[in-house]
Design a protein around this nucleic acid. Structure first.
Length: 139
RNA sequence: GGGGCAAGCCAUCUUAUCGCCCCGACUUGUCGGGGAGGAAAGUCCGGGCACCAUAGGGAAGCAUAGCGGCUAACGGCCGUCUUUCAGUUUCGAUUGAAAAGGACAAGUGCAACAGAAAGAAUGUACAGGUUAAGCUGUAGUGAAACCAGGUAAACUCUAUGCGGUGAAAUGCCAUGUAAGCCUACGCUUGAGGGUUCCCGUCCGAUGUAGGUGGGUGGGCAGAUUGAUUGCGGUAGCAAUGCCGUGACUAGAUAAAUGAUAAGAACGCUCCAACUUGUUGGGGUAUGACAGAACCCGGCUUAUCGGCUUGCUUUUUUA
RNA sequence: GCACCCGUAGCUCAACUGGAUAGAGUACCAGAUUUCGGCUCUGGGGGUUGAGGGUUCGACUCCUUCCGGGUGCG
């Protein structure tokens, strides 16, 4: 991790980038702000003292009763995030890191290509929101 | 060759790039190895294991129910008897399927409608019979009136089994509900504490309850080699046991197996050719049910398709 | 992961310890009343009692296997 730029360029998604602490999840849902972009609901909360973004991906049991389809969707979203997270990390080193929650709210099992396209869109939107937030803090 | 039924087995494969979880090695970020199911599901039964101060007796409760066997155990499995249903029949039987299949000759309850009568009831008609008489038979109603009546997936009785709670159990480390103060009760002649209830047993006062004050929600063990399983032999009708010899086959914890691309094979579907069920080409696209959560043995339910064996039926040929 | 409860007309509830056509209110439809509408009155339709199997002469009720919905446990 001596060179953060090359490290961030890697298309990896290790455990440290996944949100797994119960306490932080609770905080995210209580205080975080959110927007909808079909098929996702995106929740985010800035964390100044964090080294990297932490991401949570969730699929509702109410909408998808089958554990297999839930797993499938989670994997597809995970994969899409892994390949496109550089949209967030590379250029924008200035604003603070955040907790991000992706809730899959769609009713259908979408193919990977559309999921990826939508996720790219949502990342760009998220980037915009975060920069606005950091600008507000500075001013 | 086609169809049907039953039993058993399998549950697409290969390569490349990027990535996830665990283990090992060292040069500490690289390499090597491993990585979901037959039901992992439902949680319907039975265990292992752990804790509950002790885990004994009785009552209550729950479960099982021909007989015998297997098993760690079972409500499971195997064998067998009986009953019922279906097929065949040379009327002797035989084949297959199903069955919560103890007791109403202990007691209590229940039985709509119909019927004279549904439980100390005996009517009517006809026939028989008698000194006389529901004394005998038949008819009619009904699920039951065959009289020691029917009904126990009605209470109940009999026999057998079960103490309770479940890995959110439990132990250790870290953290520290601490310490202190106030109030009430109690003092070895036994308070309080188990539990569905009672008795017995057991523990034995720095105790119990409330208030004030003040947090964590992490890690390790439990936890993956076991009533495990392949093959061979052996005992047994079988379930299954025993012996020998191999194999190691996930250990995650907001929860790991994926994505993309190419090919093979199996499907599905369209077109063409004729030899009429094959060949060639195109399209679709990995197909069903479905994701381990302490671990096993069963049961039940879901399931695209393929293979093997046996039985049966039909067609063709002789 | 474990333990437990509930499913009856579109909705809210009844139906005794098995006994027959499963009954109310509301909503819906039609008629009466009104110039029209509402209110009111009368009548009507609507149920495989969550699904399948079993016990029984007979099942909403008893037993069993699924399906759906909900609750509790750190």
């Amino acid at each position: 991790m001596s060179d953060p730029k090359t490290a961030n360029l890697k298309y990896t998604f290790p455990k440290s980038e996944r949100l797994h602490s119960k306490k932080l999840i609770q905080e995210l849902f209580d205080k975080g702000s959110s927007f909808y972009l079909y098929p996702f609901k995106v929740i985010f909360l800035t964390q100044a003292d964090h080294e990297q973004n932490e991401v949570l991906i969730s699929v509702s049991k109410r909408k998808f009763k089958n554990a297999v389809t839930r797993n499938l969707l989670k994997r597809k979203v995970k994969e899409a995030y892994r390949l496109n997270k550089n949209l967030l990390t590379t250029e924008s080193q200035t604003f603070p890191k955040a907790l991000i929650g992706y809730i899959y709210t769609g009713n259908d099992i979408l193919p990977y290509q559309t999921i990826e396209a939508k996720l790219k869109k949502s990342l760009l939107r998220l980037k915009k929101e975060l920069t606005e937030l950091s600008n507000k803090d500075q001013s």
